[in-house]
Computed example of a mutant assay.
Amino acid sequence: MQTDPRIDAYIDASAPFARPILAWFRAHMHAALPEVEETIKWSMPFFTYRGKPLANMAAFKAHAAFGFWKRESSATGHEGEAMGQFGKLAGMADLPEPDALDAMIRDAAALIDAGEGGRPRAERPAKPEADVPQELAEALAGDDAAAATFNAFPPSCRREYCEWIGDAKRTETRSKRVAEAIGWLREGKRRNWKYENC
């Protein structure tokens, strides 16, 4: 069992009620998954597997907590009650069933083995393609070079031009922006090209 002396120090500095709880989780991590590694992240004991975050634990004034990084690996019914998935652990009687915890540890490692070791990112819905203002559409229709650049840009870059021109309140401002946009597009420049090399 490879241990990190910083975790020894963390446990020793914790409140007396928390020490056996933290030691118990630590022992189970190593017993269920001998390849687990220890470290300190965000000032808390952390367990990693194959370089990926697996679980962490912490001690507070009145409770301890343990949680898996990939939360789907444990369905305990305590989500939201404390930092981890097992609620506020105030004593040894609050610990999960040992066999159940060992299975959760192995399941969490299996997710990493399957390439699912990071926290899932919430998928953002794709923004719709921007409406091209009429003045810009007409100017692009008369300039092949600017149109080629505009059409080759990703949707976000096209949207920047469309919104900049579309937000103009006055006709004069809109015309001025269209002229500037066409000039920049002929040169292959994005709308905010001035800030790209800052």
Results as ranks from 00 to 15, higher is better:
140 L>R: 02
78 H>N: 09
8 D>G: 04
3 T>L: 10
171 T>E: 11
159 R>F: 05
72 E>V: 12
157 C>Q: 14
17 F>M: 04
79 E>R: 13
116 E>W: 04
57 M>G: 00
186 R>Q: 14
132 V>D: 03
171 T>R: 12
104 M>G: 05
90 A>S: 07
89 L>F: 06
170 R>T: 15
46 F>L: 09
116 E>Q: 15
25 F>M: 04
175 S>P: 02
104 M>I: 09
146 A>Y: 06
170 R>F: 11
52 K>I: 08
165 I>Q: 08
104 M>F: 09
78 H>A: 09
120 P>M: 04
148 A>Y: 05
9 A>S: 05
159 R>A: 14
84 G>E: 09
182 I>P: 03
159 R>V: 11
187 E>C: 00
191 R>K: 14
25 F>Y: 15
2 Q>W: 02
168 A>Y: 02
133 P>K: 09
44 M>F: 06
70 K>L: 12
198 C>L: 12
148 A>F: 10
107 D>A: 14
39 T>S: 12
37 E>S: 13
36 V>N: 07
47 F>C: 01
30 H>Y: 05
82 A>G: 08
131 D>K: 15
1 M>S: 13
106 R>N: 06
41 K>F: 03
104 M>S: 13
177 R>T: 07
118 G>E: 15
22 L>G: 12
63 H>F: 10
29 M>A: 13
41 K>L: 09
150 F>M: 05
172 E>F: 00
196 E>M: 12
86 F>G: 03
49 Y>P: 01
20 P>A: 09
127 K>R: 13
95 L>G: 03
190 R>F: 04
20 P>W: 04
121 R>G: 06
74 S>P: 00
99 D>F: 02
63 H>N: 07
112 I>S: 00
52 K>C: 11
40 I>E: 04
46 F>Q: 05
134 Q>C: 03
26 R>L: 07
175 S>L: 15
119 R>Y: 12
159 R>C: 08
133 P>N: 07
89 L>N: 07
98 P>G: 01
27 A>E: 14
179 A>W: 07
72 E>P: 04
193 W>Q: 07
28 H>Q: 08
69 W>A: 10
44 M>S: 08
67 G>M: 04
89 L>Y: 00
84 G>I: 10
90 A>Q: 11
153 F>V: 14
42 W>I: 06
188 G>E: 01
86 F>V: 04
64 A>N: 08
186 R>C: 09
190 R>P: 00
7 I>N: 13
126 A>C: 01
122 A>T: 12
195 Y>R: 14
132 V>I: 11
147 A>E: 09
193 W>P: 00
9 A>F: 11
192 N>I: 02
9 A>H: 03
91 G>V: 07
153 F>N: 13
134 Q>S: 13
156 S>V: 13
111 L>V: 01
155 P>M: 07
178 V>G: 02
168 A>R: 13
24 W>E: 11
137 A>H: 09
111 L>G: 10
163 E>D: 13
146 A>D: 04
124 R>V: 15
80 G>T: 11
146 A>L: 01
1 M>K: 12
157 C>K: 15
96 P>N: 01
177 R>L: 10
23 A>F: 03
194 K>F: 04
85 Q>V: 13
133 P>T: 12
166 G>N: 05
133 P>I: 06
151 N>P: 01
97 E>P: 04
123 E>F: 10
195 Y>T: 14
101 L>V: 05
133 P>V: 11
35 E>Q: 11
